[in-house]
């Protein structure tokens, strides 16, 4: 039986690990390769690097991090942040990433999803989404780290993502992100009901129970967290043990 995945995310700026709280107030912490190795040791099913650098120089440093990690960590690596072209996909995959995650640029240029899927295969195209309640009972999609409202309905967007050949969706609820009150079950359930590709839950994890809640109450394939793991409040092993106790199949 296919296991549910527990995924740690590392925010990286200029080749160093950082963690933003609600996208602001970032503080510098350390070497991403070291963190990746530690997460691998704890049993991470996949490791996500999220590059928050805007410069070309930072991008180069990110690729160095991926290259080094790929030499020491043998689980799937996903890289996101600032991916805007087929060439970005190619460079990132060549550095050793198995998947590339695209967010804002997929909204401004949806063809990027279809082209990348055609050239590199759906399995390596992940579309990240930042979404929020619109106040009228629906959800709307944002870009640029949640700064720009695309006035686009979430359900419509996820269907388009699937039709264009993306292999996976990483759904970050802006309503839940940073609250540590749990994943956004409602929003997750909504998206899982719309598409047939795997959905990764992101944003809101604050304690052990939140992981199994999302995996039991929705059809999501994976759960992602950054700071909880990063600040060693929980280990991936603890999350997996708790999942097993709740009858969830994990590696």
């Amino acid at each position: 039986m296919l296991a549910k995945r527990i995924i740690p995310c590392l925010d990286v700026r200029n080749g160093k690990v950082v963690k933003g709280v609600n996208f602001e107030g970032i503080r510098d912490v350390g070497d991403p390769v070291k963190y990746a190795e530690e997460y691998n040791r704890q049993g991470a099913d996949e490791i996500v690097f999220y590059d928050i650098t805007a410069s070309a120089e930072g991008r180069g440093l990110m690729l160095d991090v991926v290259r080094e990690t790929a030499k020491r960590v043998f689980v799937p690596l996903c890289v996101g942040g600032g991916i805007g072209s087929i060439n970005d996909f190619r460079e990132t995959l060549r550095a050793g990433a198995d998947k590339v995650s695209v967010n804002s640029q997929a909204l401004t240029n949806p063809d990027l999803i279809s082209e990348a899927a055609k050239i590199f295969g759906s399995q390596c195209v992940v579309v990240g989404i930042d979404a929020k309640r619109d106040g009228n009972g629906g959800y709307t999609v944002y870009r640029n780290g949640g700064r720009i409202d695309m006035k686009m309905e979430l359900g419509k967007w996820v269907k388009e993502i699937e039709e264009r050949g993306a292999g996976e969706i990483c759904l970050n609820s802006m309503d839940a992100d940073g609250t540590r009150a749990g994943f956004d079950i409602e929003m997750l359930d909504y998206v899982c009901g719309k598409v047939n590709i795997p959905v990764i839950a992101s944003g809101g994890a604050g304690k052990l129970k939140h992981f199994s809640d999302a995996l039991i109450q929705t059809n999501c394939s994976a759960v992602l967290a950054a700071s909880l793991f990063h600040f060693k409040e929980l280990t991936i092993e603890q999350v997996k043990d708790d999942c097993r106790k709740n009858g969830i199949s994990v590696r």
């Binding site: 039986m1 296991a3 399995q123 996976e168 047939n196 590709i197 394939s221 994976a222």
Partner: peptide, 28 residues
């Protein structure tokens, strides 16, 4: 179930293989 199968799945042994040496049945 969705296609592709993407993720970790466990192996169910069928026949002996030298490649499975020191690997437990059910390994992901």
């Amino acid at each position: 179930l969705v296609i592709p199968q993407m993720g970790w799945n466990s192996l169910e042994y069928n026949h002996q293989s030298a490649l499975l040496k020191d690997i437990d049945n059910g390994a992901y």
